[in-house]
Computed example of a mutant assay.
Amino acid sequence: MTNTLAHDAELDATGLNCPLPLLKAKMALNRMASGQTLKVIATDAGSQRDFRTFARLAGHELLREEDDAGTYRYWLRKA
């Protein structure tokens, strides 16, 4: 479906409900260096709002988001 964006780490949060995808993403980002990109795969519909808000408040850059029939993908660049 997509030309995938390069990423340094990937987090599979499928099947997890809010707020677990976001919490796991925060933990993964904490282990990463500034400027690195984390790809997150989630199935929780609430994750769209969560990741947009989180990126804005935490200063990370949401490079891209995709919704593929209920599977959501996010690319976050660590601040």
Rank of each mutant, 00 (worst) to 15 (best):
L57S: 05
N30Y: 05
Q48E: 06
P19Y: 03
L20D: 05
C18D: 04
P19M: 01
T43L: 00
H60R: 07
L16V: 09
D8S: 12
L76V: 13
L29G: 01
N30C: 04
A42R: 03
N30I: 05
G46D: 02
E66Y: 07
L11M: 09
H7V: 15
M27W: 05
G35A: 13
L29Y: 03
A33Q: 12
F54S: 03
M27I: 12
H60G: 02
T53M: 12
G35L: 09
T53S: 09
L38W: 12
F54P: 02
L22R: 11
L38G: 07
R73N: 03
K78M: 04
L29V: 05
T71S: 02
E61Q: 09
Y74R: 04
L57V: 14
E65L: 11
D68N: 10
E65K: 11
G35S: 09
F51Y: 13
R64P: 01
L29W: 07
L62F: 12
L29K: 03
A33C: 08
A42F: 06
G70Y: 12
R31H: 08
L11D: 00
L63G: 02
H7F: 15
D12Q: 08
T71Q: 11
Y72H: 13
A58K: 09
R49F: 15
D44L: 04
L63S: 00
G59F: 11
T14C: 07
L11N: 08
E65W: 14
L20N: 07
W75Y: 15
A45P: 07
L29D: 00
K78E: 01
L63I: 14
S34K: 14
K24V: 06
R73V: 15
L23Y: 08
G46V: 03
Q48M: 12
L20F: 06
N17S: 07
E65V: 10
A69W: 08
D8C: 09
G46R: 11
D67Y: 11
K39V: 13
D68I: 15
A42K: 05
A25E: 03
R56E: 05
G35Q: 07
K78H: 05
Y72A: 02
R56S: 12
A45T: 12
Y72G: 06
D12C: 09
W75T: 10
M27H: 10
R77G: 00
R73Q: 09
T43I: 04
P21W: 06
L38H: 11
M27S: 03
S34E: 14
D12W: 08
F54Y: 15
D44P: 03
